[in-house]
Design a protein around this nucleic acid. Sequence first.
DNA 1: CTTGATAGTTAAGCGGGCTGAAATATAAAG
DNA 2: CTTTATATTTCAGCCCGCTTAACTATCAAG
Lengths: 145, 145
Amino acid sequence: MSPPLNQTLHEWMRVVMRHSMRNFMLYAKEKNHSLAQLNALLRIHHKGTCGITDLGEEMGVTSAAASQLLEKLVQQGLALRTEDPSDRRNKRVVLTPAGEQIVREGMAARQGWLEELAERLPPAEQEQVSAALQILIQKANQLES
Amino acid sequence: MSPPLNQTLHEWMRVVMRHSMRNFMLYAKEKNHSLAQLNALLRIHHKGTCGITDLGEEMGVTSAAASQLLEKLVQQGLALRTEDPSDRRNKRVVLTPAGEQIVREGMAARQGWLEELAERLPPAEQEQVSAALQILIQKANQLES
DNA sequence: CTTGATAGTTAAGCGGGCTGAAATATAAAG
DNA sequence: CTTTATATTTCAGCCCGCTTAACTATCAAG
């Protein structure tokens, strides 16, 4: 019998946060991006395409801040701003391939330690862990839609 | 048969990062702490007690930066600096109860969505997930020591 | 006691992100 | 056409964190 899931989750997240936050900040510094920029890339990646105000709300900042942040991303060739033809007040924001690349790298930087860990598990346990995570993933997707 | 663990981990981390990063940044803003400060608290919490230079190395910044950052934490009553009696050049950094509290709150903010998700799983799946995460936790602790 | 190494602090300067307010452009309503 | 609302941008001013470089304090070796 395993400990209650709540307690296990708490402990697990402690481990995850310690590693992934550290790795992510080091990656940001190495690549000369700010955390705010990386977070914005992650948001845009997730939403697919969205307006500037949406983006700001999502990140908890004013639309002015979002606009300025986006400008930096555009200058770096990581994102694109295009007008919405149906209402030219709105802009549509999307990531460039370079922007998508940064998102992928950032993920990899954050989860490298986990993959290393996973490799050292015997196949049976790998199977067990994979099955359990699939449950969580599925439930998360379900709650989001 | 579940998908390969590597692929599952990748997908899982995408979900975790999206939620936990967002929640963490919103928490930081709400409480008027910077991410750098929260990260420092997390580091000190984990190392238990350490010198200023150590802390800087851990975070990937110079010792000057670490010293300044720490000063802010001390002013806010979140950390304490004491001299090492055996070598008074060294300082020992520890968290105050208020500092520990912030760490706990930050974790809670990051994992709230996960707990909500876990509650909606049937008991059998909760058990299955908990068992699998225990495997990962154990392996992580083992790799760290 | 002097020399040199080590740990930490302080100060100046730089760039980044945020806000509030003003400005611009577009759309919708009367 | 005028008015009002919406989406975004620009600007000034602020705070923050980082770095380099200079400085202080302490220790250890000769």
